[in-house]
Design a protein around this nucleic acid. Sequence first.
DNA 1: GGTTTATAAGTTGTTTACAATTTACAAAAT
DNA 2: ATTTTGTAAATTGTAAACAACTTATAAACC
Lengths: 238, 238
Amino acid sequence: MTSDAITLLRSQSLTTLVQQELERLILSGELAPGEKLGEEELAERLNVSRGPVREAFRALDQAGLVRIEKNRGVSVRQVSVEEADEIYELRAGLDELIGRLAAERITDEQIGRLRKLITGMDKSAKEKNVDAYYPLNFEFHDLLASFTGNGTLLNAYRRIVNELHLFRRTTLALGDNSFPISIREHKEIVDALNKRDGSRAGRLLYQHAIESRSRLHQVFNGPAPRVGSGFSRRKNGR
Amino acid sequence: MTSDAITLLRSQSLTTLVQQELERLILSGELAPGEKLGEEELAERLNVSRGPVREAFRALDQAGLVRIEKNRGVSVRQVSVEEADEIYELRAGLDELIGRLAAERITDEQIGRLRKLITGMDKSAKEKNVDAYYPLNFEFHDLLASFTGNGTLLNAYRRIVNELHLFRRTTLALGDNSFPISIREHKEIVDALNKRDGSRAGRLLYQHAIESRSRLHQVFNGPAPRVGSGFSRRKNGR
DNA sequence: GGTTTATAAGTTGTTTACAATTTACAAAAT
DNA sequence: ATTTTGTAAATTGTAAACAACTTATAAACC
């Protein structure tokens, strides 16, 4: 249909398209963390002028995917271990909320979709196929977030998952091959949802994220630095 | 000192300054929700060209403060009741996390600062002075979020508080004068923090946000629409 | 009179040009 | 040889110009 092309042209500006394309390139790893992004070069590559590229940079900076330094250019954001730790902490909180809310709203059909994904993950895990596993895992959690019916929450969740994705790119380049051993956990989560047990689903999802965080610490500092009931941190605001 | 001016000039581009100024104008209400923002007009008002203004728009759009419609201009974002409801739901989850984490990390000196704010709020509440109360309430929660030591969490929190601020602007114009009757709650929260009781502080903060949400429903739909354990929603992703 | 179609004015989208700053490199000085 | 200083090239920041689209206004048509 040509009406598709019309709607596209109607809603999408060059800036938006550039933004989406850059987002894709960054999350896929084609543009690696730390890599410098020259305006002229990108503009040429995408056949646009520098204006739209600069505007897309501003949006991506706010989205946490690139970093802008005045007079020194733009680069793909590098997420440090400390930041990743913070992000996991936040993600755990969001996931807990997601579990509680999703349990109140989820339909049987939606539960079926989650179960189907788990089957695929199970298969990939047995084959030790990380490349097949990750997208399914991603889809599982993204779907779950959408089942809360809260679009604002979904957006917030996606934003920080993007940042974690960026971090994974960094560690991947460092040869980290750690495999998330969380097949059973996913099943337990869906079981809790099936019983509409929000507290339990929330608790399981919180734990699920905290375990990812622990794996992170194992890979880097050896045993995780811990404070209080299992959180470590540094840095600050104010 | 002149080195201040140098650092400023060094780190701040016109785009950044325009962005900050627009943010201020929007949050202060000088630019009202729904109001159209003409590029030319703003550029003239701020003595810059359209380029920096457009770039600032892209950042503010991503930050959720303005809305961009292709070929139709930019306007200050209007947060609907449905969206505000979603945001409160998210805020409750974040606040719960903030309470749990802050309890692990907070110092006695920081608790003192919170207590001082409560004293001021108490006073403003007795005088029914909303204009004095709100900034203190804002400061209280912002400080608390910073005491988690998690900058990522603080950013996420500030983002959605900004959006709620935007919503308040909308309702204020509608003559809503509802006063948050939450002085005692603040004291209970600080008490829980003082005992380093993270679960309790988290629960209280969650409840605190949910009550704001209920007030919202009272003002609009009369009695709040409820589902399950006290949440209502609509809309979706996927 | 009311609807439709031209036309013009205003606004936004994009490109191009210019200015300021940074980075790279080479020559000079110690 | 190493550091410093100066100059040129490259890159970013800003402004201005041009093109495309939208909105408002008025004329034409039914």
